[in-house]
């Protein structure tokens, strides 16, 4: 006991108290920390720089398309025929096919994805969730080209058998849309499930405590509380559907066609880019440059969707605050 006291008191006796206290607090230089910070900052920069580079490249080529090909922006955006060989560069058929297949995809993915998310977060036991969620995520790992052939060799024949071969053509937007929907379902499901699971259990208990059933609790309490996250998930999925290429390139056909009939073939923006750029197209031609105009437009559309989703999310949140 005495010894202990001695050892505690010893340093105080040998140096002034003030100095001893201050010395431990002196600012230290940590080169490692600074290095890590710079490294992480550069990582963040790479993605930003990539995005900007893409926009610059797209814009430059698109600009030369508009100036050299003699196609005005107005003609490009409102033209109803896309036939580069004949000099017709109206993008509407491609935009129409992109939007139509994406909407069909959302019609499939929203009920399936949100239903799965609600089941996983509100109904499933821990054991079932442990099996189901990884399985669902596995779906997201299947290469899209496999989905493409799934559409072409399974869904399309099925549609033709059910709805009639004279109604449904071999290449059609419906089959492509349905399969894109299946492809983005895991995305809707997992992102929404994250949002639903993040709702505090206190709200569920409050609802159950008032005599609400699981369904009432899920629909009237959990879902509205998670609405901003769920809407964000849907917007991400929509953007993904619009950008999806392989399935539509394989199953929707290769002819730009302005039609609202989902049984008809129609080439989407991404499908057209993939087909033309995969062919023997020489650098600097008008056809080549037109692809960049399409790409820029698609980029603008998804950007708009993104901005819209942010606005919606903020708007929905305001209702509750």
């Amino acid at each position: 006991m005495l010894e202990l006291e001695h050892s505690v008191n010893a340093p105080v006796a040998s140096e002034p108290l003030q100095e001893r206290r201050a010395s431990g607090l002196r600012r230290r230089i940590r080169p490692g920390e600074t290095f890590i910070q710079i490294l992480l900052f550069l990582c963040a920069c790479v993605s930003i720089a990539t995005t900007f580079s893409i926009v610059i490249v797209l814009s430059r080529e698109a600009l030369s398309f508009f100036t050299e090909a003699g196609v005005s922006v107005g003609q490009f955006l409102t033209g109803t025929t896309w036939r580069p060989g004949a000099g017709h560069f109206g993008v509407l058929p491609l935009v129409n096919a992109t939007i139509l297949t994406s909407l069909i995809a959302m019609l499939v993915a929203l009920p399936l994805g949100l239903g799965a998310a609600l089941y996983l977060s509100e109904y499933a036991s821990a054991r079932i969730r442990g099996v189901l969620k990884p399985t669902l995520e596995l779906l997201a790992g299947i290469p899209t080209v496999v989905y493409g052939y799934f559409a072409l060799t399974f869904v399309t024949p099925l549609l033709r058998r059910v709805l009639g071969a004279e109604t449904v053509q071999i290449y059609n937007m419906l089959s492509a849309g349905i399969v894109v929907g299946i492809l983005i379902t895991p995305l809707v499901a997992t992102l929404s499930e994250d949002a639903l699971s993040a709702v505090p259990d206190g709200l569920r208990n409050a609802s159950f405590g008032l005599g609400a059933t699981r369904w009432e609790t899920a629909i009237k309490v959990v879902f509205p509380a998670a609405s901003s996250g769920v809407i964000a998930a849907c917007m991400v999925a929509m953007a993904r559907a619009m950008g999806e290429t392989m399935v539509v390139a394989l199953a929707a056909g290769a002819s730009p066609n302005l039609s609202l009939n989902p049984f008809e073939p129609a080439e989407t923006m991404t499908g057209h880019i993939a087909r033309i750029s995969g062919g023997d197209l020489s650098y600097g031609t008008i056809d080549y440059q037109s692809l960049f105009a399409i790409g820029l437009l698609l980029f603008g559309m998804t950007l708009l969707l993104n901005i819209l989703s942010r606005w919606v999310v903020r708007h929905v949140r305001e209702v509750y605050d």
């Binding site: 208990n205 409050a206 609802s207 008032l210 005599g211 509205p224 509380a225």
Partner: peptide
């Protein structure tokens, strides 16, 4: 569910709905 409609509950942490 019917039981909880007749026997209500108030919890430790105030948990109003975000409504």
């Amino acid at each position: 569910v019917q039981v909880r409609r007749r026997i209500g509950m108030v919890f430790q942490k105030p948990n109003p709905f975000p409504k």
